[in-house]
């Protein structure tokens, strides 16, 4: 190490097996990521791709009854999390690393006032007395732009709109100024005008308190507008990773290309006239019981070779910070540059 600070979060070779009804599913396979201090990394993918399981595994929130995980490296700001006890993890969660979920109604306690929940969080982790914690709670509500804080502290979750509840969740998540915030579809349940407000808020908070964020989403629009780097997941694996500008300008994995091509975009009617057909990706996501031989996308891929069906490609760096797990990425790159 040459004196540069360690990454805020480092994950290498994370694998998670989930057991259900006698079957075992490899939900996450060979997942690695590095999150620098203060940056936003998006993980994008469709349902079942393993993006949420990755976050829950990092926080060790998957029930041991059904989940088995292992990783060759799991570090938070240089500190190894692999050997930590349950008690030590509990002290870390909500403190140095915390999480915001999609549906705040299911993560807030419905029978406790919002104020009580925020104040408890502050007292648990920061050992403040009630008066100091209450003052801090009011500061937090201002930080997440909830007006009329005194009144809001006395309200119950059901008395608030979805957007306000998500602000409360965010306030609790950042109460201890965490180094890392894992946000799992934080705006998916919200209307589009409220989503814009919450994305704006998250970015503002990051600037103010220097939190690094992993933003888990299915929405490529959210990725483009919020993240610095992006990881694309498919069937439990990382298929592509790049700085956001590069991923949108020069996507290389056939799945990423398919996702970008099949999403409807604003402005389509002016560009192509209304009611143009969308590009379809054929087939659907593979069922992940047992191990998938070869590349998980091979069955849907127009470029697949025999090799792709036999052997899974590892992510390979094809440009600075741009990694692609595709046997044909290099070849197609050379074709694109006229070298073949």
């Amino acid at each position: 190490m040459s004196g540069s600070p360690p990454p805020a979060l480092e994950v290498a070779d994370l694998a998670v097996d989930l057991r259900s009804g006698g079957r075992t599913i490899r939900a996450v396979d060979g997942m690695s990521l590095t999150l620098d201090a203060g940056e936003t990394l998006a993980i994008v993918g469709e349902s079942g791709c393993g993006k949420s399981v990755t976050a829950l595994a990092i926080l060790r929130l998957l029930p041991q009854r059904i989940a088995t995980m292992r990783a060759s490296r799991l570090r938070l700001g240089g500190e190894d999390l692999v050997g930590l006890s349950e008690e030590e993890m509990r002290r870390l969660r909500g403190n140095r690393i915390s999480m915001v979920f999609q549906e705040p109604m299911t993560s807030l306690n419905p029978v406790l006032s919002v104020g009580r929940q925020i104040i408890e969080t502050i007292r648990t982790h920061r050992g403040l007395d009630r008066a100091a914690a209450t003052a801090e709670a009011l500061d937090l509500l201002r930080l997440v732009r909830i007006p009329d804080g005194e009144r809001r502290l006395g309200q119950y979750p059901f008395e608030m709109s979805g957007g306000m509840r998500q602000r409360v969740m965010i306030a609790m998540a950042v109460a201890c100024r965490p180094a890392v915030l894992l946000a799992d579809e934080p705006t998916t349940a919200l209307d589009v005008t409220v989503q814009a407000q919450i994305l704006d808020l998250l970015q503002d908070l990051q600037r103010r308190i220097g939190t690094a964020m992993v933003l888990i989403t299915h929405d490529l629009g959210v990725v483009a507008q919020s993240a610095r780097r992006v990881v694309v997941m498919y069937a439990g694996r990382k298929v592509e990773e790049a700085p956001v500008g590069r991923l949108f300008a020069d996507p290389r994995h056939p799945y990423t290309l398919g996702l970008l091509a099949s999403m409807p975009r604003l402005g389509s009617s002016a560009a192509h006239g209304p009611r143009g057909r969308l590009r379809e990706m054929s087939g659907s996501v593979p069922v992940m019981d047992g191990r998938i031989e070869g590349c998980p996308f091979a069955a849907r891929c127009a470029h697949a070779l025999d090799l792709c069906r036999r052997s899974a490609p590892e992510p390979v760096e094809i440009a600075p910070d741009h990694r692609v797990a595709c046997w044909r990425a290099q070849e197609r790159l050379e074709m694109a540059h006229g070298r073949v």
Binding site: D191, Q195, A196, Q197, L220
Partner: peptide, 20 residues
Amino acid sequence: ASVPVPDPTVPRRPPIEGEL
């Protein structure tokens, strides 16, 4: 204006305030 544009070269527009 609130719809996130899937193009990182397009700057995000400021959200409208308030709720329904």
